[in-house]
């Protein structure tokens, strides 16, 4: 069992407000880790520390350590551009760029300039295939991304993240804006993706966490209350609060 990411004593602040308190967590390679917990408990904040998206918000501060294959992610001198290529992110609401489907997939690589032009077509194809969107769009790659359905847009956003060849995928409630069929498609896709990638997914659906994840972490008020194998967390939680949340007694 290899650790892809090791989080130790992570504290996080928005100005004076402490949103994460002493988080410790091991993210295992090629596994799906689900993060659950009531609204406002810090799940989004936590995954935003791993690709340093919090850099974009003035007045934020993270202390402690997040080690990614031995690299310290909280290092001030870290090249976040390189980091975000290796740790991709998919958001709650599909956010395609106002460009064609093909341009969306190529958006990152074109701006990084590290893939030769001759390989672009192939990259578009493999990325869309991995996101299981290829057969639905192969004849309309030049159409606007907005012509796709919400579920297709979300898979396009996954393809777009995969095109920069990441090792880890962060997903913040990727199915909360989708209907059950589109959700099922993405869950199926995640099963495939974990063979190649390490996935961290925030979800509000207990069933989803139980269905798809290997590990589960339960957050409450900025603290990681419980973390372990999904099976154990759901069938035999050690903390009373975890049990209450999972059984729907609060949250």
């Amino acid at each position: 069992m290899t650790n892809k990411i090791k989080v130790e004593h992570l504290d996080f602040y928005y100005g004076n407000f402490q949103a994460l308190k002493d988080i410790n967590m091991d993210i295992h390679q090629n596994k799906i880790t689900a993060l659950i917990g009531p609204s406002g408990c810090g799940k989004s904040t936590f995954i935003k520390t791993m690709n340093r998206m919090f850099d974009l918000i003035d007045g934020t501060k993270a202390t402690g350590s997040i080690s990614f294959d031995g690299t310290e992610l909280l290092d001030k001198n870290l090249d976040v551009v390189q980091l975000r290529k290796r740790i991709g992110m998919v958001f709650q609401k599909p956010n395609p760029f106002p460009k064609s489907i093909e341009e969306n997939v190529l958006y990152g690589v074109k701006r990084h300039g590290d893939v030769p032009k001759s390989e672009w077509d192939e990259l578009v194809k493999t990325s869309l295939k991995k996101a299981s969107l290829w057969t639905e769009v192969e004849h309309k790659l030049n159409q606007s991304a907005f012509s796709l359905s919400g579920g297709q847009q979300q898979r396009l956003c996954i393809a777009r993240a995969l095109a920069t060849k990441p090792e880890v995928l962060l997903m913040d409630e990727p199915t909360s804006a989708l209907d059950p069929i589109a959700t099922a498609k993405i869950e199926e896709l995640l099963e495939e993706l974990k063979k190649e990638y390490t996935v961290i997914i925030v979800t509000h659906s207990m069933q989803q966490a139980a269905r798809i994840s290997d590990y589960t972490g339960f957050f409450l008020n900025g603290e990681l209350i419980e973390f372990g194998l999904t099976k154990t967390v759901f069938s035999n939680p050690t903390d009373k609060r975890t049990e209450d949340y999972i059984t729907g007694r609060f949250g």
């Binding site: 690709n51 998206m53 974009l56 976040v80 551009v81 390189q82 980091l83 975000r84 290529k85 991709g88 992110m89 958001f91 609401k93 956010n95 395609p96 760029f97 106002p98 958006y107 990152g108 701006r111 990084h112 956003c157 777009r160 993240a161 920069t164």
Partner: peptide, 27 residues
């Protein structure tokens, strides 16, 4: 310009300047 689109660009590891020329200014 919706912040979700900007974040989408930054999350791909695209630098600030290329995010400005890539999505912010066109929109």
């Amino acid at each position: 310009v919706p912040s979700s689109v900007k974040e989408g660009s930054y999350a791909l590891g695209v630098s600030r300047w290329r995010t400005i020329t890539g999505v912010i200014l066109p929109m």
